[in-house]
Amino acid sequence: MRFTPELPFDGGRLKPLQSEDTAALFALYQQPELPGQKPLQDESQIGRLIDLSVQMAATQRGIMWAIESDGEVCGILSGFDWQASQLRIMLRADGLPVLSDEHRAAAIKAAVDFLIEKYHLRNFGYQWVSGQNESIPGLLGTLGFERCAVLRDAWRTGDREFADIHQFHFISTAEKPQPKKLGDDDNPGQNLDRDVNHGGTH
């Protein structure tokens, strides 16, 4: 079963974390964009990361994609704090300096569009931590995200050092799904190999 699809965007694609990308992902984690995050020491930790990304997507707790731009893996798009019943999720896109704003924005949009279409999510949060790339807040604005709160010292960067989290939200205007009885759709969970039966016959 597949839980995380490949999603193309202009100039690149989102793709599930795979073992063949271990070296590229390890290189990515040598230049962490998040304040306070230490570079990974051991390449075997990437294997664990890949396993977790599959488990999270399978249980609708989170979802992770590698961002491939011009044929190179240069970022990770993470969806976490996925509240399936509340139709919301938190996003963050972390990348190498070579990841352009244009491609970062396109990657976020591709993920948002997919999550609206497949899982009917409506509320997309994005957490930007003070000290990250300064262009990201402006980029989020172009995607319809609004800055809703500045959470003081909510991100720990050292023993007693902290950074603010700026929390943005984008609320989809798509209609909420109507509750149905179990079995009304032939849509077994999040298996991407199966599609929703819209025909109404079972």
Partner: peptide, 12 residues
């Protein structure tokens, strides 16, 4: 406490 903002549509 300090006000930090309003998070929209956090639950139904």
């Amino acid at each position: 406490f300090s006000a930090e903002g309003v998070l929209p549509q956090q639950q139904e």
